[in-house]
């Protein structure tokens, strides 16, 4: 058994993002972190390692020094044995499929049997990559899991569905799982492990090392601009006696907001 996990380093939830004046990029004013859903994936990978006494490899597409530092301070410190950070100029501007192709190639090269991902990243919110990775690898894929049991090569996963319904899915490895909140409680790393993580292997292959070319990751849909959402309209103050205000509120909720 070899466990893979996909860890995307993104702006933290309370970082302020600001689009550049020409809309071609955005600045992050704040810290970058391994995304919160990816943190559930990391924890599940470590739990799987503890159960099966196996190796864990993390995979990340692109990143500079801050990304590497985050991976060392969290993913490697928590117990992953190796990090693979694919770095190639051609990855700038790639799309979800390009990221998925890159991850799938790296995962295949490492020979993983199971891969954990967060259900989504918290920056672009595309929710596409894990399913694409599974498809490219020809593996089973179960999304938004909140429980998982692996015995031998068989698994039983419980998925969280909208409306509070839970779905139980059974299958065989290899598989890609995406983690939903509630799957586990991510642990904190221990300081000796944080220090020891400095010496853990971290590889930075380019696309060619994975058997890919720039054309394989060329975006089919190109981001043309970043901008801020429209400002929220100002609140409206209702006037009159209580009956009048309630009637007006109900009308607004029914006719304008359309929630009644």
């Amino acid at each position: 058994m070899k466990v893979g996990l996909c860890a995307k380093v993104t702006a933290d939830t309370d970082a302020r993002l600001k689009a550049s004046a020409d809309g071609s990029s955005f600045e992050v004013n704040g810290k970058v972190v391994v995304g919160p859903y990816d943190a559930f994936a990391v924890e599940e990978a470590i739990k799987t390692k503890e159960k099966f006494k196996c190796e864990v490899v993390s995979f990340t597409v692109g990143g500079g020094d801050d990304v590497v530092a985050q991976l060392r301070g969290t993913v490697l410190a928590l117990g992953a044995d190796k990090a693979v950070v694919v770095s190639d100029p051609a990855l700038a501007g790639t799309d979800s499929l390009g990221v998925a192709r890159t991850l799938a190639a790296a995962i295949k090269k490492e020979g993983c049997d199971v891969v954990f991902c967060g259900k989504q990243a918290i920056d672009d919110d595309n929710v596409q990559v894990p399913a694409m990775v599974a498809e490219l690898l020809g593996w089973a894929q179960v999304s938004r899991i909140v429980e998982l049991e692996i015995e031998g090569t068989d698994f039983k996963a419980t998925r969280s569905m909208d409306g509070g319904v839970r779905e139980v899915v059974a299958g065989s490895l290899p598989a890609v799982f995406t983690a939903e909140r509630g799957l586990n409680t991510p642990r904190y790393p221990k300081l000796p492990a944080v220090i020891a993580a400095k010496k853990k292997p971290l590889e930075t292959p380019d696309l060619a090392a994975l058997g890919l070319s720039g054309g394989d990751v060329a975006a089919k849909a190109v981001t043309t601009a970043y901008g801020a959402p429209p400002e929220r309209p100002k609140g409206r103050k209702l006037e009159g006696d209580v009956d009048t205000m309630v009637s007006e509120l109900v009308r607004l909720l029914r006719e304008e907001v359309k929630v009644l």
Binding site: K31, A69, R72, G73, A77, P189, V194, I195, A197, K198
Partner: peptide, 14 residues
């Protein structure tokens, strides 16, 4: 020598 700036930043983050 057993540590570096990135590691100490991780200690502070933790």
């Amino acid at each position: 020598a057993h540590t570096d700036l990135d590691t100490l930043r991780s200690v502070l983050d933790l």
